[in-house]
């Protein structure tokens, strides 16, 4: 069950034969799936330094999500961080716009009744 965030969620999959290559990494997310995977993939793939980003849920009965990032330049972790930060920004802005529109709608409809 996904009740707690205290345990470690992200781990890294060893890259076969590449040794310590910081530019290509596969991150494993515990208790995540398509919900976060697809949105995060979209955010990261939009980074111009990223050569490739893809995600997969390797097995449906195992709640794990693999996210692969390959970079033109820079570290894969930084691209992941930037993707998460972008998602946070997007959430903040969406919430702001939604709250604004909601209060406009409510004030218009209260005055009518």
């Amino acid at each position: 069950m996904s009740f707690f965030h205290t345990k470690q969620v992200i781990s890294q999959l060893a890259d076969a034969g590449t040794g310590i290559d910081e530019s290509s990494k596969t991150f494993v997310f515990e208790d995540e799936g398509h919900t976060l995977g697809n949105a995060l993939r979209y955010m990261i793939v939009n980074n111009p330094n990223v050569q490739f980003c893809g995600y997969t849920v390797p097995h449906p009965s195992e709640s794990k999500m693999h996210l692969r990032i390959q970079m033109f330049k820079g570290r894969a972790v930084d691209a992941l961080k930037k993707g998460l930060e972008d998602l946070v920004k997007m959430c903040d802005h969406s919430l702001l716009v939604f709250n604004e529109e909601m209060s406009i709608y409510k004030s218009e409809h209260d005055s009518k009744t």
Binding site: I10, A39, E85, V88, C91, D92
Partner: peptide
């Protein structure tokens, strides 16, 4: 979604 991302960021940092 935001909390998910911030807690993952914390862990990465």
């Amino acid at each position: 979604l935001k909390d998910k991302c911030t807690s993952l960021l914390q862990e990465l940092n």
